[in-house]
């Protein structure tokens, strides 16, 4: 077929030369390459003892952030649930009562907030959708493997960032 463009470059096969026909030179060459690698430094990372550096924007396990005073940022607007293509987020909203200002930043808050980690595809759309900087996908944590299905419904107890005081424990 005549060319459709002027950028054609034929890479088609060349005839084998005599030395190529004899198998051995190419085999020796291949053996040389593998032997070179035999003595090379190994690329393996000894997980779990060593962990590989992940990028700072890696989309790992979710966290519900607190603000600088330790109050929960989430205001249960539901945008993350709408944005979730896997429909993995569910929540129920509640009104903040008097005296709870140190717990919840806004007047509305999420009474329950559940992420189904099995459904979740870690696409980051919830993080992008959140207008309150409440939900983030951490780069330093991965969702661990577990034995039971129920253990993957992450409620607020596992999602909300621990308070600074508990962190020091």
């Amino acid at each position: 077929m005549e060319p459709l463009s002027n950028r054609k470059k034929n890479v088609a096969q060349k005839e084998m030369t005599l030395s190529e026909r004899m198998y051995l030179p190419a085999i020796a060459q291949g053996l040389g390459i593998t032997l070179k690698h035999f003595f090379k430094k190994k690329a393996t990372i000894n997980y779990p003892e060593e962990t590989r550096q992940r990028s700072e924007i890696w989309r790992g396990l979710h966290v519900l952030k607190r603000d600088e005073n330790g109050a929960e940022r989430c205001t249960a607007c539901g945008l993350c649930a709408v944005a979730c293509p896997a429909e993995a987020i569910t929540m129920t909203a509640g009104e903040r009562k008097a005296g709870e200002e140190h717990l919840y930043r806004e007047e509305k808050y999420a009474v329950t907030y559940e992420v189904n980690m099995l459904r979740c595809i870690f696409c980051g759309l919830c993080e992008e959708a959140c207008p309150k900087a409440a939900i983030f996908l951490q780069d330093d944590k991965l969702a661990p493997a577990r034995y039971e299905r129920d253990e993957f419904i992450y409620g607020k107890d596992r999602l909300v960032e621990p308070l600074k005081t508990t962190e020091t424990k």
Partner: peptide, 10 residues
Amino acid sequence: KIAAFIQDRV
């Protein structure tokens, strides 16, 4: 082991 070493593994 040899396979691993040839393939840059441990």
